[in-house]
């Protein structure tokens, strides 16, 4: 097996349940995993789990979207691990909009977590994929980024920025033979949504992970998961602004 036949995956925000589900499935097919996040104890547990499930290797590394100092060691480690470089980004934070309204300084953190932090790291990673002429970056954005809504427009704005970044990255990587996929989940049954009112058509983290892997092998561009969110968002985007501004959806 050549070195590039081996897949290496950087998972950013690997403590989330969606990321954990994806890491497990990648482990099952023998990938090399670099699990990045803040809760090292939890990352170590997931790394052990992935190793037991068949990963070539799985290790934990510190990543804090708000601390760019944590980025270079991750890039260096990806370089050292070799194989075809891939990444999946699951980071983001969604404090209740009312808390941000009370303390506008929180806005910076939301944007760093959901957009600028991961984008800056991916900017460092892109040359690795270009050099390999292969590999995929999966950016998990959100349907919340498709239109600013009363309930979470700061989070939505950050995700919208990230979606636009992913679109440009896809444009760039495609020229070198690599690829980028934007994934927009609707409601997913995670710790973030547990006990929240108004949840419907909730998808399991495993289903989202399956969709991601399928999208990678099919080189899809923008993926809504579950698929029907594409149509829900099409309708929401089509509502004329004079009407939309009076809605609270």
């Amino acid at each position: 097996m050549t070195d590039t036949a081996r897949e290496t995956w950087l998972i950013l925000g690997a403590t989330s349940s969606m990321a954990r589900a994806l890491a497990r499935k990648l482990a099952g097919r023998g990938a090399t995993l670099l699990l990045a996040g803040r809760d090292m104890e939890d990352l170590e547990a997931t790394a052990a789990d992935c190793t037991a499930r068949g990963a070539t290797s799985a290790e934990a590394i510190r990543f804090d979207a708000r601390d760019p100092e944590s980025f270079p060691p991750i890039l260096a480690r990806m370089q050292a691990l070799g194989g075809t470089p891939n990444a999946a980004v699951f980071v983001g934070s969604m404090p209740p909009q009312v808390e941000i309204d009370d303390d506008p300084a929180m806005l910076d953190g939301v944007v760093a977590d959901s957009f600028t932090g991961p984008a800056r790291l991916l900017h460092g990673l892109a040359p690795l994929l270009e050099a390999a002429g292969a590999g995929t970056i999966v950016g998990v954005s959100s349907v919340a980024g498709d239109r600013g809504r009363l309930g979470n427009y700061v989070y939505g704005a950050a995700k919208s920025g990230f979606t636009t970044y992913m679109s440009g990255l896809r444009n760039r990587l495609g020229r070198a033979g690599a690829h980028a996929i934007t994934v927009k989940p609707g409601f997913v049954d995670t710790g973030m949504t547990w006990g929240l009112d108004g949840m419907f058509l909730v998808a399991s983290p495993e289903a989202v992970a399956d969709t991601i892997l399928k999208s990678v092998s099919k080189r899809r561009n923008v993926v809504y998961t579950p698929f029907f969110w594409r149509y829900i968002m099409m309708i929401i985007r089509a509502v004329p602004e004079p009407i939309f501004r009076k809605l609270s959806i």
């Binding site: 349940s17 104890e41 710790g191 547990w194 006990g195």
Partner: peptide, 29 residues
């Protein structure tokens, strides 16, 4: 959120309960 109000049953589905359930995703939680 930590707690969610749920209705749940045992496997036999005769006995029922209603109460708040937590579903931690990390050992620290």
């Amino acid at each position: 959120m930590t707690w969610k109000q749920c209705d749940y049953t045992g496997w036999g589905r005769v006995y029922h309960a209603r109460g708040e359930l937590a579903r931690p995703e990390r050992a620290s939680a």
